[in-house]
Design a protein around this nucleic acid. Structure first.
Length: 297
DNA sequence: CGAATGACCTGTGAGC
DNA sequence: TGCTCACAGGTCATTC
């Protein structure tokens, strides 16, 4: 379920366990995910210390003390799980049993944590659209997976003016433009639908029309930029609020109860106060779009 | 060049 | 119950 807010929630859950941890062993249980694992994957990681856990768009970045960086993408169905042995030792510790082990556990990192405990983090991915790649510190921006990524909607940069500049002259529908990771990096199908609903804009409008002439922001562009940021911020808040340190009792990360305003609500009443419309589903570039034709124009 | 489509995988739920 | 089908939150390669 990983769009940007879910990936960030996973990052925050993993962070206290992996930052400062020493990788004592790595189990790689199959040769590939979406792509082959990097050559000598387990050997290269064993003995390294994690200096920081970062994120770029939907990519998790494990920074190591030798200057290497592990780029981890969750694809459509990937997840990380934390396992620890024994009773809790400090207030920050948590205990998770191994009952969730499954055939789709593809990689296991055995860690000696900064707090001198033992932990494992397990990557599980039934559909195997996820992947892991290696990069070098200082050359991250040149890595094929990260080069060309657009602005992060969780930060402060995205405003109406920037959105208008990005969409200026684009003939693609708004839905497709918002999904384009080269423009805004981190939005996925759900939050694009949600942002358009908030902004009361039709997903079928031409992106360039919203930008306005010459990239000067229209009221629609301002509204859309605000909606995108608010949708992401609200999802992030939801990710942290219902969980203890973003970690479920079973150690799984990043999946949280969430209700959507339009996504997956085909045929149901529009939730906007005063709107009597019904949510429709259409297909744009092969993917479902949910929107209310009555109030999104 | 931009835009649209198919491919990559497995799991799930709806409908018969 | 068991089968088939449509569909699933992402990206990449290919085609028009």
């Amino acid at each position: 379920m990983p769009e940007l807010p879910e990936v960030e929630t996973v990052r925050r859950g993993l962070q206290p366990v992996v930052e400062g941890a020493l990788i004592e062993a790595v189990e790689q249980r199959r040769p590939d995910l979406r792509f082959p694992f990097p050559d000598r994957f387990a050997d290269r990681l064993t003995g390294l210390r994690v200096t920081a856990l970062g994120r770029r768009a939907k990519y998790l970045l494990f920074h190591f003390d030798d200057g290497g960086v592990l780029i981890s993408h969750l694809g459509m169905s990937g997840s990380w799980r934390i396992e620890t042995d024994g009773p809790d030792r400090t207030p920050g510790d948590f205990h998770h049993d191994r009952s969730k082990a499954s055939a789709h556990d593809h990689a296991v990192f055995h860690l000696a944590t900064a707090g001198n405990g033992k932990a494992r983090i397990v990557f599980n991915d039934p559909r195997r659209f996820g992947f892991m790649l290696m990069a070098q510190e200082g050359r991250l921006d040149e890595h094929p997976s990260l080069a060309g990524l657009g602005v992060d909607p969780a930060g402060n940069e995205l405003d109406g003016a920037m959105l208008a500049r990005l969409f200026d002259g684009k003939k693609a529908p708004l839905k497709a433009a918002l999904l384009d990771q080269r423009l805004i990096a981190g939005l996925g199908n759900i939050y694009v639908c949600e942002a358009l609903w908030r902004a009361q804009l039709s997903p079928t409008l031409q992106a360039g029309a919203v930008a306005g002439k010459g990239g000067r922001p229209t009221a629609s562009a301002e509204r859309l930029a605000t909606s995108v940021r608010d949708v992401i911020a609200d999802a992030l808040a939801a990710g942290g609020s219902s969980l203890r340190d973003y970690v479920h009792a079973d150690g799984s990360l990043g999946y949280f109860q969430h209700s959507f305003s339009v996504y997956d609500r085909e045929g149901e009443a529009c939730l906007r106060p005063g709107c009597t419309g019904v949510v429709h589903r259409i297909v744009q570039s092969g993917r479902s779009t949910f929107y209310c034709p009555s109030c999104q124009r």
